[in-house]
């Protein structure tokens, strides 16, 4: 995508919606649609993005859009895509259309995992974009399967005994790769070129595609609104959220110039402040070790032989 050309296009996800200042989800929607273009049908799981963008009688979507429920953005878009395939086969429709589903991490990792898995397995020609802010933000920062260990959330709070979420998050991108889909990727808010390139690439491929976009949330992660993109980039530099793509099973990682300690990323956010108390050092170390281990595992996936040396 050429940025000079892109800004001349009609905005497909307009301003005037009711997202928080500094909301990363709105950035994801806008940039994904900039790359996808106007011939796109969007489905959206219940969640922040849907709530802030479609308060009747207003809509922020200048493309056809459907929201039906929380756990079924993938099933809903697969129905729309099925109709499109049917009409094409019947010779009733000849336009080329992209089908994109958006879901938060709650609607994707947790309650929507079954419908996502079904849609990917059936092989619909769709792109599923998870705007992953690592908790249920719409209902007020509850822990999800995407919440990292040690994070403070309202259903796994930091208390006198407990230190936030006690489990590691699940690796949903790996689960998607295991479906044998032709394209899966991780991206961030804060690197528009990387995200839009991935969307363009995904949409150029037939079949089911998945992009897991790491989306800092100023409310749930507790930081100043202007830091959204910086926190996204810092997640890559510290390997808290590596960005990569998997094309037909082949990994290609965009590596940081210099891998920074994960504390550099954690300390920017209110949800991790308790980790910096002396009594929680073991937990902080554990989080660093887990990040190192995950990074090593990922590198092996990219070049199995090289990493064994």
């Amino acid at each position: 995508m050429n940025i000079k050309e892109a800004v001349k296009q009609k905005e497909l996800f307009t301003g005037g919606h009711r997202a928080c200042a500094g909301c990363g989800a709105a950035i994801v929607a806008r940039q994904v649609l900039m790359a996808a273009g106007p011939n796109t049908v969007v489905s959206n799981a219940t969640g922040c993005l849907e709530v802030v963008s479609t308060i009747f009688p207003y809509t922020a979507w200048n493309v056809p859009f459907i929201h039906s429920a929380f756990e079924n953005a993938a099933a809903t878009i697969s129905g729309a895509e099925a109709l499109y395939q049917s009409w094409r086969r019947q010779g009733k429709y000849d336009k080329k259309v992209n089908f994109i589903a958006f879901g938060g991490d709650g609607g994707t990792y947790d309650i929507g995992l079954q419908s996502l898995s079904g849609a990917m397995e059936r092989g619909h020609n769709i792109l599923y974009v998870c705007y992953n802010n690592e908790a249920y933000m719409n209902t007020g920062v509850q822990r999800s399967g995407a919440t990292p260990k040690g994070a403070d959330t309202t259903t796994a709070p930091v208390g006198k005994v407990k230190k936030g979420k006690e489990q590691y998050r699940k690796d949903l991108t790996a689960i998607m790769v295991a479906h044998g889909i032709p394209y899966a990727a991780q991206a961030i808010v804060g690197n528009w070129r990387d995200l839009t390139s991935k969307v363009e690439k995904a949409l150029s491929i037939e079949g089911p595609k998945f992009i897991n976009v790491f989306q800092p949330c100023r409310l749930g992660w507790s930081y100043k609104p202007e830091l959204t993109c910086e926190i996204g980039r810092m997640a890559v530099d510290t390997c808290a959220w590596p960005i990569y793509e998997v094309v037909n099973g082949q990994y290609k990682i965009t590596k940081p110039r210099e891998k920074k300690p994960i504390a550099d990323w954690l300390k920017l956010q209110g949800r991790f402040q308790h980790l910096f108390k002396p009594e929680n050092k073991a937990l902080l170390d554990d989080i660093q070790h887990a990040a190192d281990r995950n990074w090593e595992e990922l590198l092996k996936k990219e070049a199995p032989e090289k990493s064994e040396k």
Partner: peptide, 19 residues
């Protein structure tokens, strides 16, 4: 569309009918 549950069956029907 041989879906993976009845919930998805009706969800896909809703997507297709809305389309």
């Amino acid at each position: 569309v041989p879906v993976e549950s009845e919930h998805s069956a009706m969800s896909a029907c809703i997507g297709a009918a809305s389309a």
